[in-house]
Simulated scan of single mutants.
Amino acid sequence: MKQLSHYLTAMRDQTPLVQNITNYVAMNVMANVMLAAGASPAMVHARGEAAEFAGIAAALSINIGTLDDEWADCMVLAATAAAERGMPWVLDPVAVGATALREEVAARLIALRPTVIRGNASEILALAGTVAQGSGADTGDSVAAAEGAANRLAIQTGAVVAVTGAVDFVTDGRKAAHIAIGDPIMPLVTALGCSLTGVVAAFVAADAPFEATVAALTYYGVAGEVAAETAHGPGSFQVAFIDALHAMTGDALDARARIAGVCSPRFVS
């Protein structure tokens, strides 16, 4: 894997247009986060244009957070268009184990072969058909407990699977990485996890999915650590975090990154 600065530079040089079908709570925060990172976000979800816009975007991210039947159909239309183009797209299966509707929509989307699936441990366990301890969008399971499920899901779907938490875990079923970076205050700010999905899509638009996902998660975590150095609570953290994403240089990213080597994975069955 190349220096992480390579992936950040590649993304910023491309300024990828990323179509985001995300939840109501996340839209504003997500757009600002992606702009600060160097991408070009577009919140396009209407039935009449979702598929058409996927024909011009560089990547697509789909988040099922505030789900309804109309939006579900639009998600499928956009993901179908992305799949037909061979365009990378990222699925964020928010609270997938909570209701039958979420399980049904997630199954429809996974059938369209997302490039990356990013979720918390309980969401990944639920997608893999394992009993999970999630409560709505919050995880009740550890990342370590989801590693085996993530590996199986990656093999079954062909996607890179990213399990995010205190120590992120990324696998494509053949190789894996642990990313121990970030700050505990990050989950206290609404929509930062949803926004990460868009950043992953932007990185994947510019480079190989596994490596780009690892780079995106590391970049995000480093920005969280930088923001925490000056923040006094969740409110000031959000502002400092967006500033840190914008100000991050490739050299700073390389210097602060902590990845437990990209290697053959060790999984729990």
Results as ranks from 00 to 15, higher is better:
Ile181Trp: 03
Lys2Val: 15
Met30Glu: 02
Val94Cys: 08
Met87Arg: 08
Ala202Pro: 10
Lys175Gln: 13
Pro209Phe: 02
Ser142Pro: 01
Ser142Tyr: 07
Ser40Pro: 07
Met87Asp: 01
Pro114Arg: 09
Thr22Met: 06
Val105Gly: 01
Asn23Trp: 05
Ala137Asn: 12
Gly38Cys: 02
Ile185Lys: 06
Ala202Cys: 15
Thr22Ser: 11
His178Pro: 05
Glu84Tyr: 14
Thr157Trp: 08
Val199Tyr: 13
Leu153His: 11
Ala260Leu: 14
His6Gly: 04
Ile185Met: 07
Ala144Ile: 01
Tyr220Arg: 01
Ala144Tyr: 11
His45Leu: 09
Asp254Phe: 15
Val44Leu: 15
Gly140Thr: 03
Gly173Cys: 07
Ala252Arg: 09
Ala215His: 06
Ala212Tyr: 03
Gly65Glu: 01
Ala31Val: 10
Ser122Ala: 11
Met248Glu: 03
Ala79Gly: 05
Thr157Met: 04
Gly65Ser: 04
Thr190Tyr: 05
Ala216Gly: 05
Ala59Asn: 03
Arg174Gln: 08
Ala252Gln: 04
Gly233Asp: 07
Pro93Arg: 15
Trp71Asn: 05
Gly233Ile: 06
Pro114Glu: 04
Val268Asn: 00
Ser269His: 12
Met75Ala: 15
Met186Thr: 01
Pro114Trp: 04
Pro114Gln: 07
Ala215Cys: 00
Ile155Leu: 13
Asp168Arg: 09
Leu253Cys: 04
Gly129Ile: 06
Ser122Gly: 03
Val239Asp: 07
Ala208Lys: 13
Ala176Leu: 05
Leu35Val: 12
Ala145Met: 14
Ala215Gln: 04
Ala46Glu: 15
Ala39Phe: 03
Ala227Asn: 12
Arg118Ser: 13
Arg108Val: 00
Asn20Val: 02
Ser122Val: 11
Gly129Trp: 11
Ala58Lys: 15
